[in-house]
Amino acid sequence: MANVMKPARSPLTTAEIAALALSLAHLGSDPQATAARSGLRHAFEHMEIGDEVVSTTLATLTEPMPAAVADRARTIANAITSHLVVRLHYRDVSGRVTVRDVDPVTCMVHRDYWYLVGMCRLRGAIRAFRFDRIVATEPTFIPARPHRAGDFLPFQGRRAVQQGHEAA
Protein backbone atom coordinates (compact mmCIF):
# COMPACT_ATOMS: atom_id res chain seq x y z
CA MET A 1 0.00 0.00 0.00
CA ALA A 2 1.42 3.38 -0.98
CA ASN A 3 1.57 6.36 1.32
CA VAL A 4 -0.44 9.31 0.10
CA MET A 5 0.79 12.79 0.97
CA LYS A 6 -1.54 15.74 0.72
CA PRO A 7 -0.67 19.39 1.11
CA ALA A 8 -0.76 20.64 4.70
CA ARG A 9 -4.09 22.07 5.83
CA SER A 10 -5.09 23.75 9.00
CA PRO A 11 -4.55 21.51 12.02
CA LEU A 12 -7.38 19.48 13.48
CA THR A 13 -9.51 21.30 16.01
CA THR A 14 -9.62 20.10 19.59
CA ALA A 15 -13.19 18.88 19.07
CA GLU A 16 -12.14 16.91 15.95
CA ILE A 17 -9.23 15.30 17.78
CA ALA A 18 -11.50 14.38 20.72
CA ALA A 19 -14.12 12.87 18.39
CA LEU A 20 -11.55 10.80 16.51
CA ALA A 21 -9.84 9.67 19.68
CA LEU A 22 -13.14 8.75 21.38
CA SER A 23 -14.18 6.72 18.35
CA LEU A 24 -10.87 4.86 18.45
CA ALA A 25 -10.54 4.52 22.22
CA HIS A 26 -13.69 2.49 22.71
CA LEU A 27 -12.91 0.08 19.87
CA GLY A 28 -10.65 -2.04 22.06
CA SER A 29 -7.37 -3.54 20.96
CA ASP A 30 -8.20 -5.47 17.80
CA PRO A 31 -5.84 -5.00 14.81
CA GLN A 32 -8.02 -2.38 13.08
CA ALA A 33 -8.30 -0.24 16.22
CA THR A 34 -4.58 -0.59 16.90
CA ALA A 35 -3.76 0.55 13.35
CA ALA A 36 -6.19 3.47 13.62
CA ARG A 37 -4.67 4.62 16.92
CA SER A 38 -1.24 4.36 15.33
CA GLY A 39 -2.49 6.70 12.59
CA LEU A 40 -3.71 9.18 15.19
CA ARG A 41 -0.32 9.04 16.94
CA HIS A 42 1.31 9.66 13.55
CA ALA A 43 -0.84 12.78 13.11
CA PHE A 44 0.44 14.02 16.48
CA GLU A 45 4.07 13.59 15.40
CA HIS A 46 3.75 16.78 13.37
CA MET A 47 2.55 18.82 16.34
CA GLU A 48 4.98 20.71 18.53
CA ILE A 49 4.75 19.15 21.98
CA GLY A 50 6.92 20.87 24.51
CA ASP A 51 4.63 20.44 27.49
CA GLU A 52 4.34 17.40 29.79
CA VAL A 53 0.57 17.94 30.21
CA VAL A 54 0.07 17.89 26.43
CA SER A 55 2.34 14.87 26.05
CA THR A 56 0.43 12.92 28.74
CA THR A 57 -2.90 13.94 27.21
CA LEU A 58 -1.85 12.72 23.76
CA ALA A 59 -0.75 9.38 25.25
CA THR A 60 -4.19 8.99 26.87
CA LEU A 61 -5.90 9.83 23.58
CA THR A 62 -4.18 6.96 21.83
CA GLU A 63 -4.60 4.22 24.48
CA PRO A 64 -7.54 1.78 24.38
CA MET A 65 -10.08 2.15 27.17
CA PRO A 66 -10.81 -0.68 29.59
CA ALA A 67 -13.79 -2.74 28.33
CA ALA A 68 -16.33 -1.46 30.89
CA VAL A 69 -15.37 2.17 30.26
CA ALA A 70 -15.45 1.55 26.50
CA ASP A 71 -19.05 0.29 26.76
CA ARG A 72 -20.08 3.48 28.55
CA ALA A 73 -18.10 5.56 26.06
CA ARG A 74 -20.06 4.00 23.17
CA THR A 75 -23.34 5.03 24.80
CA ILE A 76 -21.99 8.56 25.29
CA ALA A 77 -20.69 8.76 21.70
CA ASN A 78 -24.05 7.57 20.36
CA ALA A 79 -25.86 10.20 22.46
CA ILE A 80 -23.59 12.95 21.10
CA THR A 81 -24.09 11.78 17.50
CA SER A 82 -27.86 11.34 17.93
CA HIS A 83 -28.30 14.65 19.81
CA LEU A 84 -30.01 12.84 22.67
CA VAL A 85 -29.73 13.25 26.43
CA VAL A 86 -27.65 10.59 28.17
CA ARG A 87 -28.43 9.47 31.74
CA LEU A 88 -25.33 9.04 33.88
CA HIS A 89 -24.92 7.31 37.20
CA TYR A 90 -21.99 9.36 38.43
CA ARG A 91 -19.74 8.87 41.45
CA ASP A 92 -18.36 12.20 42.62
CA VAL A 93 -14.99 12.69 44.25
CA SER A 94 -16.46 11.94 47.72
CA GLY A 95 -17.95 8.63 46.49
CA ARG A 96 -21.61 9.74 46.36
CA VAL A 97 -23.50 8.44 43.31
CA THR A 98 -26.09 10.66 41.63
CA VAL A 99 -28.20 10.10 38.53
CA ARG A 100 -27.90 12.95 36.06
CA ASP A 101 -29.45 13.68 32.70
CA VAL A 102 -26.88 15.42 30.52
CA ASP A 103 -27.09 17.19 27.17
CA PRO A 104 -23.79 15.77 25.85
CA VAL A 105 -21.69 18.20 23.86
CA THR A 106 -18.24 16.68 23.41
CA CYS A 107 -15.59 14.53 25.00
CA MET A 108 -12.10 15.61 25.83
CA VAL A 109 -8.95 14.30 27.44
CA HIS A 110 -6.81 16.08 29.97
CA ARG A 111 -3.72 14.27 31.16
CA ASP A 112 -4.73 10.73 32.19
CA TYR A 113 -8.51 11.13 32.03
CA TRP A 114 -11.33 11.21 29.52
CA TYR A 115 -14.22 13.61 30.24
CA LEU A 116 -17.74 14.03 28.93
CA VAL A 117 -18.51 17.74 28.68
CA GLY A 118 -22.16 18.73 28.67
CA MET A 119 -25.03 20.59 30.23
CA CYS A 120 -26.02 18.81 33.44
CA ARG A 121 -29.78 19.13 33.85
CA LEU A 122 -29.54 18.32 37.57
CA ARG A 123 -27.18 21.24 38.25
CA GLY A 124 -28.38 23.45 35.39
CA ALA A 125 -24.78 24.14 34.43
CA ILE A 126 -21.91 23.03 32.24
CA ARG A 127 -20.07 20.11 33.79
CA ALA A 128 -17.20 17.78 32.90
CA PHE A 129 -17.72 14.16 33.97
CA ARG A 130 -14.66 11.95 34.31
CA PHE A 131 -15.23 8.67 32.49
CA ASP A 132 -13.72 6.57 35.26
CA ARG A 133 -16.29 8.02 37.69
CA ILE A 134 -19.25 7.22 35.45
CA VAL A 135 -20.69 4.06 37.00
CA ALA A 136 -23.34 3.45 34.33
CA THR A 137 -24.87 5.11 31.27
CA GLU A 138 -28.37 4.85 29.86
CA PRO A 139 -29.48 6.05 26.46
CA THR A 140 -32.67 8.11 26.39
CA PHE A 141 -34.99 9.31 23.68
CA ILE A 142 -35.01 12.85 25.09
CA PRO A 143 -33.74 15.38 22.52
CA ALA A 144 -30.66 17.23 23.77
CA ARG A 145 -30.65 21.01 23.56
CA PRO A 146 -28.11 22.21 20.99
CA HIS A 147 -24.81 23.54 22.35
CA ARG A 148 -21.62 24.44 20.49
CA ALA A 149 -18.54 22.52 21.64
CA GLY A 150 -16.38 25.66 21.42
CA ASP A 151 -18.51 27.31 24.09
CA PHE A 152 -17.76 24.45 26.49
CA LEU A 153 -14.03 24.04 26.04
CA PRO A 154 -12.15 26.81 27.79
CA PHE A 155 -9.24 26.95 25.34
CA GLN A 156 -11.56 27.07 22.33
CA GLY A 157 -13.95 29.47 24.05
CA ARG A 158 -11.16 32.00 24.65
CA ARG A 159 -10.16 31.82 21.01
CA ALA A 160 -13.78 32.28 19.89
CA VAL A 161 -14.20 35.27 22.21
CA GLN A 162 -10.97 36.83 20.99
CA GLN A 163 -12.01 36.37 17.37
CA GLY A 164 -15.41 37.86 18.14
CA HIS A 165 -13.79 41.01 19.59
CA GLU A 166 -11.53 41.35 16.58
CA ALA A 167 -14.51 41.26 14.23
CA ALA A 168 -16.43 43.90 16.21
Rank of each mutant, 00 (worst) to 15 (best):
V105W: 04
R121N: 07
A125N: 13
Q156P: 00
A160W: 02
V161K: 11
M119P: 00
H147S: 05
R121Y: 05
F152Y: 15
L153T: 00
A128E: 11
R130I: 03
V109S: 09
R127L: 03
I142N: 05
L153D: 02
Y113A: 15
V105Y: 08
R133P: 01
D103C: 05
M108C: 09
V93R: 00
A160C: 02
V93K: 01
R127C: 06
L116A: 09
L122W: 04
L116M: 12
V135P: 00
V161N: 07
D112Y: 13
T137F: 11
F131G: 12
R159A: 15
R123C: 07
P146G: 03
R127E: 13
Y90G: 10
D151M: 03
P139I: 10
R111A: 12
R158K: 15
P139T: 15
D151E: 14
V135G: 00
T98E: 10
R121K: 05
D92P: 08
A160H: 05
I126E: 12
Y115V: 03
R100M: 03
A149Y: 06
I126S: 12
G95P: 01
I134R: 02
A136I: 06
R159Q: 14
V102G: 08
F152A: 13
R145G: 08
F141S: 13
H110T: 13
F141Q: 14
L153C: 02
R145V: 10
R121M: 09
P139E: 14
R111S: 08
R127P: 03
C107S: 11
F131M: 14
F152V: 10
G118T: 01
F129G: 07
R123M: 14
W114V: 04
R133E: 00
P139Y: 00
A160E: 03
G118W: 06
G150Y: 08
C107G: 06
R159G: 00
R133T: 09
D112G: 08
T106L: 15
A149H: 06
G150F: 01
G95H: 12
V97Y: 03
V97C: 09
R100G: 07
A125R: 09
T98W: 04
G118Y: 03
Q156G: 00
F129Q: 03
A136R: 15
F141T: 13
R158M: 06
M108T: 15
P146L: 12
I134N: 09
R130F: 05
I134T: 06
G95I: 15
M108Q: 13
P139L: 14
D151A: 14
Y115R: 00
A149R: 12
R121H: 14
A125W: 04
R148T: 05
V93W: 10
L116G: 11
F152N: 04
P104S: 13
V99F: 01
I126T: 11
Y115I: 07
